[in-house]
Design a protein around this nucleic acid. Structure first.
Lengths: 221, 221
DNA sequence: GTCTATACTCTGATAGAC
DNA sequence: GTCTATCAGAGTATAGAC
């Protein structure tokens, strides 16, 4: 009695929808294309998900909760600040590599339907502001670092997410082949932690920003 | 004899098209909406610009060249490395504040019509790879800093652009009021340079990443 | 549950009067 | 140059057989 892990139709549709919505966005996506991608008939889409809107909604909720829990899980770990940052970057960059369609999809959705989100947090009893403040509080207690909560967190996010979101742009601008692009993403797993950990050291109170070894006079590094 | 700076129809159309395409992207934009925005008839759009594609092309080229020249101008200045970085952040963050619609529009365009871009660079005789390498070469010569060209430039871009692109998302996640959001953007003009200049110092060869003042044992900051 | 065929709406584009 | 009217195609959604 073999276990055949064949996906049922509903799952096939959802997977296909993710791919197509990711590539084309809501407006650009075509129900026909989703049907083709899932290798089923167009009418079946409407059998399982009444409308395009409805299907999109499902894809969005799935994507957003994946994204949110990936972030929250790491942040909530009971480890030291530096371990937490490293773990965050490791887990999150890998997550983004494997789910590169999610960030742009979420951002776009916020443009089209800005309300949608607030209650998703309340439903899950999450307070992002508090969560973020926890990180920098920990940094102060353990390392005497003075980090601005929001800005530090947004910096983390930016360095992880932007390259993923702007991938098609960067690919074109720098003329990367798909293989080079993959390599670039792989490299970021070491480059981003390096950059951030270097930056953090500058926020020790004993290390004023203006100090420099060089002899340049007015504009110091 | 008063000068009445009334715009001619073609300009009215282009302005209207910018607004609508910037809000909705290519697929989401409707010719009817552009016509309404320009307070003219739909048929006139096709009189001046043969097709939707054609009109979009004009809007895109305008946005992209604005963005590109804002970046290139600063990078090409003949100043020291640190002055260049500071100038870049100052100019670019202000540009983004005043043109916050552009990044989303460009990235979205890359998803919807990935081809469109490569030749725009060739037309303007720009070699992005070379331009970017120039920055880190300068850093090595002037400050003995070993920066990876691509990654450093992408880091710069990320920290500037992502918060702008993800504005609706951040606004919702953190529950910012419009005023708070403005303040946040204003703060980034000091936070981002601080973060980056701190990070850069870590790339001096004499300053190994693993060094730390703290007594924590295995996982060093 | 899955398919074929089709209804209906929206939208980009054109024809032609003025 | 600008308008009204209309076409042709694409796309979502549904009806109904199996």
């Amino acid at each position: 009695m073999k276990k055949v892990p064949e996906k049922n139709t509903q799952e096939k549709i959802l997977d296909a929808a993710k791919k197509v919505f990711h590539r084309k966005g809501f407006e650009g996506a075509r129900m026909q294309e989703i049907a083709d991608e899932a290798a089923i008939n167009k009418a079946l889409l409407h059998y399982y998900y009444r409308s395009k809107d409805n299907l999109f909604q499902s894809v969005f909720e799935d994507a957003f909760s994946k994204m949110a829990s990936a972030i929250i899980e790491v942040i909530s770990r009971e480890v030291s600040f530096d371990e937490k940052i490293k773990a965050f970057l490791d887990v999150y960059l890998t997550f983004l590599q494997e789910n590169s369609y999610i960030p742009w999809f979420i951002i776009n959705c916020m443009y089209e339907k800005p309300e949608q989100l607030g209650e998703m947090f309340r439903k899950q009893h999450i307070n992002p502001k508090q969560l973020v403040k926890g990180i920098t509080d920990q940094a102060r207690q353990e390392y005497n670092l003075e980090l601005n909560p929001m800005h530090f967190f947004v910096n983390l996010l930016s360095l992880c997410v932007f390259p993923v979101v702007a991938k098609p742009l960067l690919k074109e601008v720098f003329g990367f082949s798909p293989a080079e692009m993959d390599r670039f993403e792989e490299e970021r797993k070491t480059e981003v932690p390096l950059f951030i950990l270097n930056a953090i050291k500058g926020f020790e109170p004993g290390r004023p920003v203006k100090k420099t070894k060089k002899t340049r006079s007015t504009n110091e590094l």
